[in-house]
Simulated assay, not measured.
Amino acid sequence: MQNDMDLTRARAAAEAALTAAERDGKRISIAVVDHRGQDVLVLRGDGAPWFTAGVARAKAATAALMGAASGDLAGLRAAHPELLDLIGAQTPQPMTTLAGGVPVRLGVDVVGAIGVSGADPDEDVAFARAGIAALRAIGERSAS
Score class of each variant (00 low, 15 high):
L73V: 09
A58V: 05
I132Q: 05
G88K: 10
R105G: 02
G45D: 00
S29R: 00
Q38R: 11
D34W: 08
R27D: 09
G139D: 12
R36G: 15
M66G: 03
A74W: 08
T97G: 04
A134T: 07
M66Y: 02
V40T: 05
V110T: 15
R36H: 13
G112E: 07
E15W: 08
V104D: 00
A48N: 09
P94S: 12
V111M: 09
K26F: 01
Q38N: 11
R57F: 01
A14K: 01
S117W: 01
L7M: 15
D122A: 15
V116A: 13
A56K: 04
V40D: 01
A133G: 05
A60P: 14
M66D: 02
V125K: 01
A137L: 12
S142F: 05
I28H: 03
D34I: 04
D46E: 12
G45C: 08
E82Q: 13
D72A: 15
M1H: 12
G67D: 07
Q90H: 11
D124L: 07
L135I: 10
Q90D: 07
A10G: 14
P49E: 14
G47V: 05
L98C: 02
G131T: 03
D85T: 10
S117M: 07
I138N: 05
G71P: 06
V32Y: 07
A79R: 14
N3P: 03
A68M: 11
A58E: 13
L84S: 08
G131V: 05
R129Y: 02
T19Y: 08
I138R: 14
V111A: 08
G107K: 13
R44M: 04
I87L: 14
R36D: 08
M95T: 13
A89L: 09
L135Y: 07
A119N: 07
M95P: 00
L41K: 08
E82M: 11
D39C: 02
L43R: 11
I87P: 05
M1E: 03
P121C: 09
F127I: 06
D122I: 00
L83V: 11
A89K: 10
S142A: 13
G107Y: 14
Q2V: 03
L41D: 01
E82H: 10
G88C: 10
A99L: 11
I28C: 04
Q2F: 04
L135K: 06
A79I: 03
R105E: 05
S144H: 01
V125Q: 01
A113E: 04
R57N: 03
V108E: 15
L18I: 14
A64S: 14
R44F: 03
P103S: 07
G37A: 10
G54A: 13
A69W: 00
D85G: 15
G101E: 04
A137Q: 15
R23C: 04
G139I: 00
R27V: 02
D4M: 11
W50I: 14
M5V: 08
D120T: 12
T19K: 15
D6A: 09
V102T: 12
A99H: 01
G45Y: 10
V32W: 04
W50H: 12
G112W: 05
Q93F: 14
I114D: 09
V116Q: 05
T8K: 10
L65Y: 03
A137F: 05
A126H: 08
S142E: 15
G131Y: 06
T8S: 13
G47N: 12
V116P: 13
F127C: 04
I138A: 10
L73Y: 01
G100S: 11
R9Q: 13
G88I: 03
A17P: 00
D109W: 07
V104S: 00
